[in-house]
Simulated scan of single mutants.
Amino acid sequence: MQEEKPCRAGSLLAVVVLAGSLGGTAPAQAQVTLDVIGPHEYDLPVDFKPFNVFVQYATFQDGDRLWDRDGDRRHTSSTRTIVGLSKYVRFWTPESNPKIGLAYEIIVPEVGVRNSDARTSASGIGDPITGLALWYKPTPNSTLGFQSFMQVPVGDGDIGGGDVWKNLSSLFWDVQFGKLTYTADAGFVFSGESTAADASPGTLFHTNHRLGYQLNDAIEPFIALDYERQQGWKNRATGLKVPEGHETTAGIGVMFKCYGNQSITVRYSRGIDGESHGATDSLNLKYAYVW
């Protein structure tokens, strides 16, 4: 394994936890699940010595638009959301089979929401996420794996935490074509019983794709495509039906690699199609450090 490989290995999983509007009914979700991933997110090694990764994600979301039931983009309450995700990951290979890679990670979300129209704001720690991933390499230039994580409802209620258990499970893959790189995932989010809604929120499907081109060892521009669809469900506490919703987003970004064990990724994403869903308009940052 090359010395700089852990830096390219990057990190595995993160989920943006967005709060609802303050003091009122929560709007449709904005930000597609797992859209925080960057290029090489799943470019992972096998047969390596154990190492650690710390990742800090930050998302700045302008939430003044939503997709209505007819698929039109409409104005909504002016909400600004900042989400930080602090993640620690431990990577290792089992002695019995060094051709398999394993990772365990813990993610702590930090959320701040401000509603300019209602003049309200809230901030706090969201529901933490923890789980395991495993993978192997079908070819020297490709990776195929599976990850499963639990989101534990112990976060601050003011920013949407402490309500429902969630399981996030997905397949992920990565392929390197010389200077062209492709990393992606596809999976589901399963929710338990919601204490606030007296119901189980609908199952959510998501898929995320990053296609990059390495200009040199330090700079890699890329394009992003993300999609999610959540099943409709009924809020038994209020009798209201939450309709099925979906959104497709597109984005552009650049990954900067430095010092052989660090990287900084910047990306802008915007919703291009949707229905009964918040409209994404976000700036996303990612810093990764490997040791």
Rank of each mutant, 00 (worst) to 15 (best):
A250H: 07
A288K: 03
F222C: 05
S200L: 06
K286T: 06
T120D: 10
D117L: 04
Q214V: 05
S78I: 06
V15R: 14
D64K: 04
T139C: 09
T93Q: 15
T130I: 04
D273E: 08
T207Y: 14
W173M: 07
A279H: 10
S276A: 08
G161D: 01
M1R: 09
H206A: 13
G24A: 15
P39C: 14
S11D: 12
G192M: 00
L13Y: 12
P98H: 13
I252N: 08
G145D: 03
S78K: 11
S77W: 05
R114L: 10
P94A: 10
S11M: 12
L102W: 10
G63F: 02
T76G: 08
A19P: 15
A279Y: 10
Y268N: 02
S282Y: 06
V17W: 07
F146R: 00
H40W: 09
S11K: 11
Y268V: 01
P98E: 13
D156S: 03
L132G: 00
Q61V: 05
W165V: 00
T203H: 12
F51T: 01
N97Y: 11
D70S: 11
S200G: 14
T143V: 02
F91E: 06
P45I: 06
Y213R: 08
V164W: 02
V152Y: 03
S11A: 12
Y259G: 01
I106Y: 12
R236E: 06
F91C: 08
F48G: 04
G161Q: 02
K286Y: 07
R69K: 04
K179V: 00
A196R: 11
Q176Y: 00
A26M: 10
S77Y: 05
L240W: 04
T280V: 11
Q56G: 09
S263V: 02
S11N: 13
R90V: 12
G20E: 12
D64L: 01
F256G: 09
I272C: 03
G162P: 01
S191A: 02
G178N: 06
N284Y: 03
P140R: 02
G112S: 14
E105A: 13
Q31R: 14
L180C: 09
I129G: 07
T59L: 05
S123Y: 08
A133S: 13
S78A: 08
L283W: 03
V175C: 03
